[in-house]
Computed example of a mutant assay.
Amino acid sequence: MPRQTIPTTRPPIVALCGSTRHWDALAEANLYETAAARIVLAPGCNMKQPHPLWEDPDWADRLKQQLDELHRGKFDLADEVLIVNPGGYIGDSTRREIAYSRSLGKPIRYTRPVPCS
C-alpha cells in the first residue's frame, strides 16, 4: 500500500526590526507575534546593556558587525518584516534594514503608523 503524505504548512516567519533602545517593545512584539502563531526571528543581543561579551571595545565592534550580518540573514529567511517603532521612532540602522527588506521584496508591517513618504 502506498504511503500517504499529509501536506503540511509551516507558520509564517516574521523578522522583528527596531532599535534595541526599545528592547521591551521588541519583547512585547515577539510575544504578540508568537501568540498569533508566527515564527519570530528577533534581535538576540542588546548591546546597549552592559555585558561581559562586549565589554572589550575592539571585540564589541567586531561583534556588532557580525550581529548586523546575522540579522540581515533573518530578513532573508522571513516571509515578512515587522518594524517595532514605539512613538513612531525609526533610527538609522532600522532605516537601512527597511531598505534591505524592501530590496528583497519582503512585506513590511509597522507597530505604529508611519507618515507616507
Rank of each mutant, 00 (worst) to 15 (best):
L16G: 01
C17P: 03
C17N: 10
G18I: 05
G18W: 05
G18C: 04
R21F: 03
R21A: 12
R21M: 08
H22E: 10
H22G: 01
W23Y: 08
W23R: 07
W23A: 00
D24Q: 14
A25P: 02
A25Q: 10
L26K: 02
A27S: 07
E28F: 00
E28H: 09
E28P: 00
N30Y: 10
N30W: 10
N30K: 15
L31N: 11
L31I: 09
L31W: 02
Y32P: 01
E33N: 07
E33F: 03
T34M: 04
A35L: 15
A35K: 13
A36K: 06
A36Y: 00
A37N: 15
R38D: 12
R38L: 11
R38T: 12
R38I: 10
I39D: 06
I39P: 01
V40E: 07
L41V: 03
A42E: 11
P43W: 08
P43M: 12
G44Y: 05
C45I: 13
C45S: 13
C45R: 15
M47D: 06
P50F: 07
P50E: 15
H51C: 11
L53E: 15
D56R: 05
D58H: 06
D58L: 09
D58E: 15
W59Q: 14
W59R: 15
A60Y: 04
A60K: 15
D61V: 10
D61I: 08
R62V: 08
L63F: 04
K64M: 11
Q65A: 13
Q65V: 06
Q66S: 11
Q66I: 10
Q66A: 11
L67K: 06
L67Y: 09
D68H: 13
D68K: 15
E69Y: 00
E69P: 00
E69C: 01
L70C: 05
R72G: 00
R72L: 13
R72S: 02
K74A: 08
F75Q: 08
F75D: 05
